[in-house]
Structures are given as C-alpha cells and as structure tokens.
Amino acid sequence: MTMLSAGAALIAVMLPMAGVPALAEPEALCRVKDDRLVEISGLVADGDGYVVVNDGADEESGRKIFYLSRNCKVTRTVSFPSKPQDTEDMARGADGTLWIGDIGDNDRERETVGLWRLAPGAKSPTLFRLSYPDGAHDAEALLVAGDGTPIVVTKDPLTAGVYVPEKALDEDATVPLRRAGDFRIPVTTTDNPYGFKGRFVITGAATSPDGKRIALRTYADAFEIDVEAGGAADAVVKAIGDGSPRRIALPNEPQGESIAYTPDGTALLSISEMADGADSVDMLRYPLPDAPAPLATSSPTTAPESKKANRPVAAGQSDEGGIPVGALAAGIGLAVAALLLGLLIARRRTR
C-alpha cells in the first residue's frame, strides 16, 4: 500500500463518504467554440441562454462578461471598467443581478479580493473590495443568498471555508469578511484529470432558481444541499455546514470549474475549461434525480460500506469501490504528511 492510499484511508474515516447517486448520462446542449472563451470559470443560466466569465484571462479580449445564446454563440459582451485580477465564478441574485467573483488567488498574496455587481439594465459592473480576517485564500466559488448576501467558498483542500461580509458592501471602502462556516468535502472515487487531489477542492457553486437548494462542485462531483425556506445567508451557511449533501458525479471533464442550475431547477449545467489543444467545449446538462438519497456519514468506529457490487457506473466514472480502512496501520503519520504536502502543491498548480 502506498503512502497516498494510507492517507486516503484516514480521510475516509474523518470525512463524509459520498453515497451512490442515481447516475444518468449528461446531455450535451451546445458547443462553445470561441477563442475568447478557453478558460470558462463562471456560469449562470439567463433566460434562453447563458452568461459566462473567464478564469483570469490573459488576453484583454477575454476579460469580459459574455452572453451566450441557447446555441452557445456569443450574442453580446459587457466590459469591466478596470482590469479584474482573477474572475473565478458567477452567481445570479433573485432580482436578476449578476455577481462575478474576482476571488482567485493561486499564490495567496492578495490583500483584497473583489466582487463585481451588474444590476439589471446596467451598462457596466460595479466593483466591491473585501478582505479576509485570517490571511489570503484562493477561492473559486460564489453564492448569493436569498437576501442578496454574497457568500465566498474557498478552495482550501479537504475543508473549505465559508465567508460572508461583516457589513453592507461599499464601493468606496474595503469590507471585511468573516468566516461563518465550513464545508467538509465528501470522499468520492469519481474519475477526473487530477485524480485524488481533484476531489478535494471546491471549484464552483450555484443556487437553485427557487433558492431552496445550493450546489458546490469539485473537479469531479457536485454536491447538492437543501436550504431552509427563504434562503437567507445564515440558512445557507448552516446548510453548507450541517446539511446532507447529495452527490451528482461529473466525471472526466477537462477542468470543471463552472456549475449552474437550469431555469426550471431540474438539472445542473456544467462547462469546463477547454482541454489543451482543443478548440471547443460542450455545455453539459446533468439531470437531477427526483428523490436522491442523502450521503452516508462515516465514523471512526464504522467504515463506510462498500457498494461496488451494486453501484451503477456511468461512462467515465471510476468503479473503485470503497476506500479500505484497514490501511490505517504503520506509517500513517508519514502518509498523511505526504498527502497534505501533495494537496498544497496541487492547489497552486490547478485553478
């Protein structure tokens, strides 16, 4: 057994184990083929089409808010009034306001992060600056609660931080954030280009049209969580920390960072960054099961039951079975240290 396997066994005991979802093949709705959109990192559904932003686009032509038709063709763009640093996610408020999370920080050196707000009918977005109370964080996930409060979920491995503004946003002053909660990322075995590491960082988030559900995604899976009626910020934070996530496998996307609900709330939409050498990428629709089973939670004394014999396997999904708990034998301290070091290195290399 390798050090990585031993570390995986320990994490399986410490974190929730992902239950087996009712799997269905995703539907390719349309294909984005535009050289300005090679690093899509944020997505929302908007009427009959979509709105997307790039992940810290190097080219000026990519540093815009892009409106797409239902066929994934660019119909118009909105420019930022100043250069964003690293736009990583989008959210749509109940009133139609678009929020863009300028929250990426691979090197964890930014003193402030930003939120861009584009109100319905506005010609240009407004920038708000925020600061963390506990040092810089890389983040790629943004939610907007039913009361209009933006919520940032960090890309910290294993346990993501959940941050909300301490007070109302002010375009003339930096507003401090506070750490309001955490999300312990469930263990899964879903195939993705980053392997084990890709299952333990949050890369995007979405709120259902009725505000009663949220979804957080990794490079491999989405986790849907119910929210109390009204969906105020406190309710969303509580759901993230205490809810029972339902897993929707998103296997083998080239670099999956975007997630959104369809306008009717019956499915999740996902679009990846383009793979190296590719000139297009598909918008995928993942149907949500009517009554998905909640995730089972493991404990230090009871290992998660292996469901390899009965589990349905979608194309591209791993059928690895349960993670062995018996691997918690000699050398576990060294194994965990090696695993955490690998995660720290990986989170600097992947966005």
Rank of each mutant, 00 (worst) to 15 (best):
R347C: 05
M90L: 15
P84A: 07
A206D: 04
A338F: 11
V74L: 05
A28I: 10
N192G: 03
P81T: 04
P16W: 12
K123Q: 09
P294G: 00
T207E: 04
A205S: 07
S318P: 03
L15C: 03
G101K: 03
P21M: 02
P312M: 02
V32L: 12
I259R: 03
G277Q: 10
R178Q: 10
T203I: 05
A141H: 06
E25G: 10
G211R: 01
D48L: 12
T112E: 11
R213V: 01
E253Y: 09
R348A: 08
A180P: 06
G62P: 06
V162K: 03
E224H: 00
D86L: 06
E305T: 14
Y261S: 01
L37C: 09
I259P: 05
V201I: 15
S79Y: 05
P84M: 02
A315S: 12
P133A: 05
T297W: 13
P193S: 14
M90V: 07
P263E: 12
F128D: 00
F183L: 08
A260K: 01
V236R: 01
F196D: 09
A119F: 04
A119D: 04
A309V: 10
R117Q: 10
L29V: 13
A346L: 10
K155F: 08
S298K: 08
E111D: 13
M14K: 14
T174F: 05
V113D: 02
T266K: 14
G104Q: 07
V44C: 05
T2A: 03
A8M: 11
K238R: 15
I103T: 14
Q85S: 13
L43G: 04
G104R: 07
A180E: 02
E60T: 14
A222G: 05
D147E: 08
V51F: 10
G316W: 13
A6W: 08
A180C: 05
V336N: 08
K238G: 02
A45T: 15
S208N: 01
F223D: 00
Y163S: 00
T302C: 08
R184K: 13
V74K: 06
E27L: 09
S41M: 12
G211E: 07
A338S: 12
